[in-house]
């Protein structure tokens, strides 16, 4: 219904979003583990733990959405790896490898092999693959020559930054609500980490806003821009901008001000505002992908 007759509809938008979300959560989590304090590990674990289900569900949706469901057998689906110069083949390869490595990282966490050098190596490989997975949806669209609205080199970077923002939001959301329940075996010194996460998110939102502006300018000549900015898709696009970027930025900015003035964040404010802003960032991520994906096809 919401696909407006486009060949790639809502489910593909959801798949592109989930792939980015999973990759983003992994990049955030593993970066925290590699470069953050030891006491922040709960967040790092959350990132790894949530990355593969997101990517896995995304892949599942992609397969369900294929146009020939009667042929969705493993041997037939292997055909997707036939053309190494197709971005879809490259993307499928990246997704498969990323899925394996994020699962492996989670195994390392579950067995508490915390100081293992091997885990660090796996995480570096996983982060690299994560960047590939986060960039691939944008490249997939940018390489499609029949869609002028997608033909912009800014698109892959927009999707990458969006993936990291949504990854930050997912990790933040998990910590806000499930941190103590899900990961009681980790230390609780995550307050600092949450403050850093919030700062990074604000920076990410600003970067996303900038890249989105540059992207729109780069495709300004196309007629699709009118449909997306002022036509049928405008509610989705502007909801993504206002709800997914501006409001969360304002919430996080206000939190930072309070922190600067008082030296602490009121717990109640923290929880509720963080939840709202994280959820808005996630919704914004999917709405933006949806508007761009459908906008390129109608």
């Amino acid at each position: 219904m919401f696909s407006f007759g486009a060949n790639w509809g809502v489910l593909v938008a959801l798949e592109l979003f989930l792939a980015g979300l999973g990759a983003g959560a992994y990049i955030v989590g593993s970066s925290i583990d590699l470069f953050g304090e030891k006491s922040w590990r709960r967040l790092a674990f959350a990132g790894a733990l949530m990355s593969w289900p997101m990517v896995g569900v995304g892949l599942g949706i992609l397969i369900i959405d294929l146009g020939r469901p009667e042929l969705n057998t493993p041997s037939h689906l292997m055909n997707v790896f036939n053309n190494l110069s197709s971005m879809m083949t490259i993307g499928s390869t990246l997704l498969t490898m990323f899925l394996a490595i994020s699962l492996l990282t989670t195994v390392f966490w579950v067995f508490k092999w915390h100081e293992s050098l091997l885990r660090s190596i796996i995480e570096i490989a996983g982060i690299s693959l994560g960047f590939g997975v986060a960039l691939y949806p944008g490249l997939l669209l940018a390489f499609a020559r029949g869609r002028v609205f997608w033909a912009s080199p800014f698109l892959p970077w927009l999707f990458l930054v969006s993936a990291i923002c949504t990854g930050l939001a997912l990790v933040g959301l998990a910590e806000t609500w499930l941190g103590r329940i899900l990961f009681p075996f980790f230390s609780t010194g995550t307050e600092d980490a949450m403050i850093e996460l919030s700062r990074t998110l604000r920076f990410g939102i600003l970067a996303k806003l900038l890249i989105l502006t540059l992207y729109v300018i780069s495709v300004w000549q196309t007629k699709e821009v009118l449909t997306v900015l002022m036509g049928r898709l405008a509610p989705f696009f502007w909801a993504a901008v206002a709800g997914g970027l501006l409001i969360p930025f304002a919430i996080e900015e206000y939190g930072e001000r309070v922190l600067k003035e008082t030296g602490l964040r009121p717990i109640i404010y923290s929880r509720i505002s963080a939840t709202i802003s994280f959820i808005l960032v996630l919704l914004g991520g999917i709405l933006l992908r949806y508007a761009i994906l459908i906008g390129g096809q109608i």
Binding site: N7, L66, G67, L71, R145, G146, G296, Q297
Partner: peptide, 24 residues
Amino acid sequence: KCIGCKYCISGCPFNVPRFDEEKH
């Protein structure tokens, strides 16, 4: 060989391929 991903539809510079939703 086709898996029905419909990428060819977007990849064609002349908007030619169509997907038959009945015959897949």
